[in-house]
Design a protein around this nucleic acid. Structure first.
Lengths: 129, 129
DNA sequence: GTGGCTGCAAAGGGTTTGCATATAA
DNA sequence: TTATATGCAAACCCTTTGCAGCCAC
């Protein structure tokens, strides 16, 4: 049987902080947020809990472009918009159905484009299971 | 004025190898490919040239999900599909307009989903220019 | 009580960079 | 000739991991 998980103080606070914001923080940003309530928590614990919480479906580990992974306490499927300068990730609630060539203002961003990425399992991986 | 660039042997071979394949290699995969022709090239040179070539628009640095960046010698805009197991990135030429709930076989992948990511510049970055 | 969890620190993987030398233009 | 590019190696950033002690259940 799969190992049990324990709702430690650290895990609970990480989850609370992630649900409190809509900013899709990186692991070190979560670290800063949580440290204000649990000053002795370690970055390793942050990473371990983010993985556990993503694994159990309580948060989303965002498979988005960019150097650092970002996390989302809102598990409802929704699209994101990424700032190509600073990497900030915003939620997309209302976006014009058509983005004109010059760009469009929406969601606190000047939107310049969109990208579709399909995902699946390639034949090579399907064979080797 | 911007600094001039020189078409060195290394840069030319990197570009040729990238145009020869449709596999969207990572930097270290490019390294392996190029080393067969230029055994003394260094990984640092690979990274520097991939950046220069992407900057000048001769190749694409793919802003895709995943840990490692991937590069594309085909600069025509086109969508990609990523293997969630091994990270392999394929070109999307023909995909069913509708992916059924169970998934669909296409492009050498078993496609399970798709993700849209908008991109632009956030208000904070627009202000600080 | 005990197995999962923590803090700490070291290691890991991918990428960038400083420097002396080589070379395209 | 000379500024750009190279090879090498060290540094860098983000993330993962080994370990001894701790604590949720």
């Amino acid at each position: 049987m799969p190992p049990q998980t324990r709702m430690t103080k650290q895990r609970r606070v990480i989850l609370e902080e992630l649900r409190r914001v809509t900013t899709h923080p990186t692991a070190d940003e979560v670290y800063d947020m949580v440290r204000q309530r649990l000053p002795r928590i370690s970055l390793g614990t942050i990473y371990r809990n983010l993985d556990v919480l993503a694994e159990s479906g309580e948060i989303l580990k965002l498979e988005s472009a960019g150097n650092q992974k970002r996390f989302d306490g809102n598990i409802m499927p929704h699209a994101h918009i990424r700032c190509t300068r600073c990497g900030r990730l915003g939620d997309v609630m209302n976006v014009p159905a058509r983005i004109p060539a010059g760009g469009a203002e929406a969601e606190g961003f000047f939107i310049t484009g969109a990208r579709v990425e399909f995902e699946g399992v390639c034949n090579a991986c399907e064979v080797t299971n």
